[in-house]
């Protein structure tokens, strides 16, 4: 636990992000889409903390508003992948040798296509937009969860503490709740936590490429994309949304690694 301050800071930041996602008005009362032709591309000031963009919209308000969409994309994609991956993983582990091999090969195939390209293939089929980005991101990350769940189920199946619990006369629901779920879920939830960060990152690249949420939605990647037309004259539209993505992904990664240490510590004990 060398990095305690970093871990605490990350959890605090994630808490703040969650608040901003639920009640953006706590952090900014300004309308993120209110254009002000009088003050386009004005630098950061007391009135506009992060400055304004090419339409005179307040960048701070847009960054705050963007929290909800980024977290929504990250959390939904990870949750979908977690559910689908767990189902596939359990099926592979419990379904006998043939099914196990078939599922493994299928996972190999999906893992052979680079993540972003698989998402792009999904978008080529379904068209751009938030919902299709989430579907694509979930599809890309599902094989990872399936692998881990399959491994966990196989590992736990033979564990001595299950035998011990049975011998002690524990009921089946007790065993499942007290042993199976915590032990199998831990590593998967850690993966899901870190996966949220990855999904937010890839999701923002998609909107940067113009394939995610469409204008005028306040989304970090899309804001960075439009900032490119002005960054010879204004640096602030290109800085703050990027900082927001980096800080979010960083906080999620640090928190995830902390949880990973906790989970690994328990399964070794």
């Amino acid at each position: 636990m060398r990095s305690r301050p970093g871990v605490v800071l990350s959890f605090v930041f994630l808490f703040v992000l969650a608040l901003a996602a639920i009640w953006p008005h706590l952090f900014s009362a300004t309308d993120p889409n209110a254009a002000d032709i009088q003050s386009t591309l004005s630098p950061p000031s007391g009135q506009h903390w992060f400055g304004t963009d090419q339409n005179g919209r307040d960048i701070y308000a847009r960054v705050v508003t963007g929290v909800r969409l980024s977290l929504l994309i990250g959390v939904t994609a990870s949750a979908l992948a977690l559910i689908a991956g767990s189902a596939i993983g359990v099926l592979a582990a419990q379904g006998g040798r043939v099914l196990n091999t078939v599922v493994n090969r299928l996972l190999d195939i999906f893992l052979s296509i680079p993540g972003l390209l698989l998402v792009l293939l999904v978008i080529a089929v379904l068209g751009p937009g938030v919902r299709n980005s989430i579907i694509g991101l979930a599809l890309v990350t599902t094989p990872g969860y399936a692998r881990v769940v399959r491994g966990e189920v196989i590992r736990i199946r033979g564990a001595a503490y299950l035998e011990a619990a049975k011998a002690l006369g524990w009921s089946r629901p007790q065993i499942v709740l007290r042993h199976l779920v915590p032990n199998a879920l831990g590593p998967v939830l850690v993966l899901a936590t870190i996966g949220i960060g990855a999904a937010i990152s890839i999701g923002s690249s998609l909107s940067f490429l113009g394939l995610g949420p469409q204008a005028p939605t306040a989304e970090w990647g899309a804001m960075l994309s439009s900032s490119r037309d002005y960054f010879t004259v204004a640096w602030w539209p290109a800085i703050f949304p990027g900082l927001a993505i980096t800080a979010t992904v960083l906080a999620i990664t640090v928190a995830g690694q902390f949880l990973q240490l906790r989970v690994e510590g328990r399964s070794q004990a």
């Binding site: 970093g6 690249s205 960075l224 960054f231 640096w235 980096t246 992904v249 990664t253």
Partner: peptide, 29 residues
């Protein structure tokens, strides 16, 4: 080691397209 490890964690978190924009802003413009 400490600063190097921190820099590595941050570098992995930075989205490549933002890094590209930053590099362009500083070193080109």
């Amino acid at each position: 080691r400490g600063p190097a490890a921190t820099a590595e964690v941050v570098s992995v978190a930075v989205p490549s397209f933002w890094l590209g924009i930053l590099l362009l802003t500083v070193f080109s413009f």
